[in-house]
């Protein structure tokens, strides 16, 4: 019964720290706003994001259309809100998948025999040797653009990032005295990995994941900007940027509308990630909170 109580107190401590850290709090608010607007998009967006209204095309901001309209008369504000859904639809499963696979492979590499470590490292290095955007373009050219393709590509290229962090931490923890003690008491490898190593690597991994979300969202936006991401007419921030680029001389609002959420999500997750890092790393705790 003590363990859950301890976990609750840790969560409360994290929140306390975030509230004390102004940037962390700002990051949390931005992230909550983005997630909230994506989740409740049908309630927030004033218009259907894909409904055409050609007579009202390329309008500037007004009370009727807060961020104006695009070349097909679609409400830009509604497309920004729905674009958040696409961003999170890509970011969350991508990060979750990459984190899970990176965690498993990293722990195996760190705890397993040397030959397996070398093999997994070779795999990581091979994947990392492809520039992500080039790899993405090659895959998209082969199988065609789609949301699932984007998710697969970004997930595949993110696995080594998490895997290497986990491997390094596992190597460090497995030589700790308490692990040796566990081993001498006859604890199984599975128990050592799941009860002792896993909880110790999860914290830093969560921080890394939070800070990776803007990268993934930016990559999706980049692919959509190039026409290699989500298919029309699905609204994504990248396709908004593409439309905005085409019409930048006619209406600059589109590119502003596509750019602002990308800036916000980057700032939000970076601030939040840094604050979480301060909480997770005892050496930094107190420095961030004292701001």
């Amino acid at each position: 019964m003590n363990k859950p109580a301890k976990n609750n107190s840790e969560i409360v401590e994290i929140f306390r720290h975030l509230i004390r850290d102004r940037l962390g709090l700002l990051g949390l608010i931005i992230v909550m706003l983005i997630i909230g607007s994506a989740l409740f998009a049908p309630l927030i967006a004033p218009y259907d994001p894909v409904a055409l209204n050609i007579p009202d095309r390329v309008q500037g901001p007004s009370f009727v259309h807060l961020l104006g309209t695009d070349q097909l008369g679609r409400d830009t504000f509604s497309r920004v809100i729905y674009g958040g859904r696409v961003a999170l639809q890509v970011a969350l499963p991508t990060i979750a998948g990459a984190l899970f696979l990176g965690l498993v492979l990293g722990m195996i590499a760190g705890y397993g025999p040397k030959w397996l470590d070398n093999l997994i490292l070779l795999f990581f290095d091979t994947v990392r040797s492809f520039p992500t955007v080039m790899f993405a373009l090659a895959v998209v050219a082969l199988v065609g653009p789609s949301l699932n393709t984007v998710i697969f590509v970004i997930m595949a290229t993110s696995i080594p990032t998490y895997g290497r962090v986990v491997r390094t931490m596992t190597l460090s923890i497995k030589t700790s005295e308490f692990i040796m003690a566990e081993r001498s008491l006859g604890a199984s490898t599975f128990r050592i990995m799941s009860v002792h190593i896993l909880p110790n690597v999860l914290g830093p991994l969560a921080v890394l994941a939070a800070m990776d979300i803007p990268t993934v969202v930016g990559l999706e936006a980049g692919l959509s900007f190039l026409g290699m991401g989500v298919k029309p007419p699905t609204p994504s921030w990248g396709s908004l940027l593409n439309d905005g680029y085409s019409l930048i001389r006619n209406t600059p609002w589109l590119i502003v509308a596509g750019g602002i959420p990308l800036i916000l999500i980057t700032l939000g997750f970076t601030f939040l990630g840094e604050a979480l890092r301060d909480v997770v790393d005892p050496k930094l705790r107190g420095r961030g909170g004292a701001k």
Partner: peptide
């Protein structure tokens, strides 16, 4: 993949949706 074509394709997509045809745009 040109902006004019993407716009045209989306109009055709909406036009065909009006008669129950789903159209996927491939760039």
């Amino acid at each position: 993949n040109k902006s004019t074509n993407v716009t045209t394709a989306q109009i055709i997509q909406a036009n065909l949706a009006a008669i129950g045809i789903s159209l996927e745009v491939r760039l």
